[in-house]
Design a protein around this nucleic acid. Sequence first.
DNA 1: TTGAATCTTGCAAAATCTACCAAAATCTAC
DNA 2: GTAGATTTTGGTAGATTTTGCAAGATTCAA
Lengths: 252, 252
Amino acid sequence: MQSEERQKRIEEYLLKTEFASLDELSEQVDASISTVRRDLDQLAEKGTIRRTHGGARVVNPKSDEFTFTARDQHQLAEKEAIATACAALIGMNQTVILDAGTTVYHVATRLEAKSPQIITNSLPVANFYNTTTKAEVVVSGGVIYPRLGVLIGPLAVEMFAKVRADIAIMGAGGLSPDGVSNSHGLLIEIQRAMIHAAKKVIFCLDHTKLGRQSISPLCGLDVIDTIVTDQAAPVEMVRALRKRGIEVIIAP
Amino acid sequence: MQSEERQKRIEEYLLKTEFASLDELSEQVDASISTVRRDLDQLAEKGTIRRTHGGARVVNPKSDEFTFTARDQHQLAEKEAIATACAALIGMNQTVILDAGTTVYHVATRLEAKSPQIITNSLPVANFYNTTTKAEVVVSGGVIYPRLGVLIGPLAVEMFAKVRADIAIMGAGGLSPDGVSNSHGLLIEIQRAMIHAAKKVIFCLDHTKLGRQSISPLCGLDVIDTIVTDQAAPVEMVRALRKRGIEVIIAP
DNA sequence: TTGAATCTTGCAAAATCTACCAAAATCTAC
DNA sequence: GTAGATTTTGGTAGATTTTGCAAGATTCAA
């Protein structure tokens, strides 16, 4: 087989799988690893694909960004259920702040019909709404925090400090009786600004997050209006939260 | 068999298979490798097929799809050449402002090795750099302008007004002796801020943009340091630009 | 920080390309 | 129809490109 044909088959294969290792591609086009490596270098030069350590991936995956989806596999069914339940809480034409977690991303994909005004610092969310005109999307400025696809830094904080919204849909690393916490310290300040800017604050947390504590404290329970979780949520925790006046929705 | 018939059969065979090796074709038309080689040279000259190492391929494969927007298909080869030439102008660790055109996007895909600091309002560019830590990417805030994947509005303008960069890599709708112009009025103000923020201003313009005028005037020629274009650029225009002290680079 | 995987680089073998040549086929002029 | 010129064809030698491999450097994940 000639190099051009090989490269085309590599492209096609990557379009299907989104990501492939060198071994995989080598077998797929029946050439040595070295040859595949050189082909990938050329394709990357052309800009059609993206090199990664150990393989390659498409530049513009039609679905989601890769590392994002990888992270997403955990608790996928629960997250989708939570997202659907949470989206149901949003009215038509509301202004919604969307946090940058994976669960919140799923909420974003279900909001299109409500023609919302969205404010976000999540690249995947921005990307999702790039092709539609149904929603007006405001993206905060900031520096890209790789892998998470989120914009951070003073620019982002300033931006959220300046806006007002009806609802903020948030994610977090853990929720305990002491409050909500998150694993990425750099996000804390931004999330506080988001919460401050919104009239109503909704947290989307699958059951693994409840009762857990993450590294950086984010806020107390008193700022939370609603929590959306899944059926495996510990009953006592739910009862305690409701006792404190927090609406807890359990997604089916 | 006559040479004409042979060439016709070669064309037909290639249309079916998209790729073919010399051996394959030689057997197919029952002629020696040398003869097939000469036939292919002639067909390639005519433009009906393309020569590759070890064989040939059809010029316009039906499934040569690019995941980027439809706008991108236009002048693709030229844009890639321009992008490569433009990327060569960037040094290591420089701060680079990237505009939101498709040509500029191609430049972005070639900058990773220079570990640049990138400032952009282009979602595709932001997305491209989402997975890597090689470059620091600052995204301007703004409202998503759907079809183009670009962030616009006061947030974006303010942001670019606040920063300073070594180089701005710009695109535009047209360049005439009167100056540079663009088709999307909403971008003008942002582009002006970009130009103002950069020490050196590079415009990437394929030959179809030279001599053309677009709707909204953007800036005069005097702010331009360098123009990167392709070989089909009108000679007189290039000479005139150089006479005005603008560096014009013609990508091979 | 360590160990494993992956990348880079240089090199030699294999494949392919570029002339070039001689034989075969075709054309031309008579 | 035929001799000589012209074109086409198939083959060959040397240059070039591509390929696979392996040693040493680098990167990644734990």
